[in-house]
């Protein structure tokens, strides 16, 4: 910006050929920009915009990957809406999100509050919380396959020893989605903890001291000072974690392979099965589009609602 104004200023100072100088400079700039942008531009077109257009085309086509695609109109979409298994998968996905997102956000926030007061030991405790974040979801799911197996699970053994009936996590239809949520919370907690701790650290101590001088209780300080001041972090995490939880797939695939029962299937699992097992590219693309629209809608709602509760410090 300021470079541009400087050029314009110098062009004004020398009245002779100002236009040409600017335009030559501009052309040089455009070429330089193209050179710097070219690798990512190629990627944008070949691996993003192109595939997006292609996916839109597929959503309105019948195609199994061989031969010619035929125009399908809206039939891929009506097929999805009439399929009870898809409805069940959509409900499962929402149920997972309802359990996982608040679960991980509230625990991460609380732990971040406590960790703040832990001084030097923070680094030690944080090791335990963040280790699952850097671990591959496949390794995580394999570990939990063990921990959820009623024959060998130490969790079940511990529950039984204190007299609580141990659930059959991955076999009992009522427990499958909550089990996924447990794994997702365990793996996602560390990331949000780090984010919340960074957010809390940026709050000036003066605000809390002022609140204390005004005689605020700890609860009032938390609710009226801390929460509003880290509301941008809360918004960012709620947007990204809802998007992430709507796309849950890895755990289910490792737990159940390609034969997950209806009670365990989620939308992305359906997309993968439809596309790469049944080679129904049309319906799979249509479902992926619906997922995209829902994510856009949910994010849009959050952005619209932020004015009412998100507080940005100047």
């Amino acid at each position: 910006m300021s470079l541009d104004t400087q050029i314009r200023a110098s062009a004004d100072a020398v009245p002779a050929p100002p236009r040409r100088k600017v335009s030559r400079r501009h052309r040089k700039d455009t070429i330089a920009a193209l050179v710097f942008l070219s690798p990512q531009l190629v990627g944008l077109i070949v691996f993003m915009v192109g595939p997006l257009g292609f996916a839109l085309y597929l959503a309105f086509s019948h195609w199994d990957g061989f031969g010619a695609a035929t125009f399908a109109g809206l039939s891929n979409f009506t097929e999805l809406f009439e399929n009870p298994r898809i409805q069940r998968s959509a409900i499962n996905t929402v149920w997972f999100t309802v359990l996982q997102v608040p679960g991980v956000m509230i625990t991460a926030f609380l732990f971040a509050l406590f960790m703040q007061k832990a001084g030097k030991m923070t680094n030690v405790y944080r090791l335990g919380f963040v280790a699952p974040v850097v671990t591959s979801s496949v390794a995580v799911a394999t570990i939990w396959l063990y921990l959820f197996n009623p024959e060998i699970s130490p969790i079940n053994s511990a529950l039984r020893s204190i007299g609580i009936p141990a659930p059959n996590w991955l076999q009992d239809p009522a427990f499958i989605i909550p089990s996924f949520a447990v794994v997702a919370i365990w793996q996602g907690l560390g990331y949000q903890l780090v984010m919340f701790m960074a957010g809390l650290q940026s709050i000036g101590a003066s605000y809390l001291e002022a609140a204390e001088l005004d005689g605020c209780s700890a609860w009032q300080k938390l609710w009226h000072v801390t929460v509003p001041l880290i509301s941008p972090t809360i918004l960012f995490l709620s947007i990204t974690s809802i998007i992430g939880s709507f796309q849950v797939f890895d755990y289910i695939y490792v737990f159940m392979d390609s034969s997950a029962p209806d009670e365990a299937r989620t939308i992305v699992y359906e997309i993968v099965q439809m596309a790469f097992r049944e080679f129904n590219f049309g319906a799979a693309s249509a479902l992926a589009f619906l997922l995209f629209l829902v994510l856009l809608g949910v994010t849009g709602l959050q952005m619209a609602a932020q004015k009412r509760w998100v507080h940005y410090a100047e």
Partner: peptide
Amino acid sequence: ATMMVPAQLTIIPLYII
């Protein structure tokens, strides 16, 4: 805007490409 696009939407065309 592309940050909003879920990977599952482009994976089928990418597979074909």
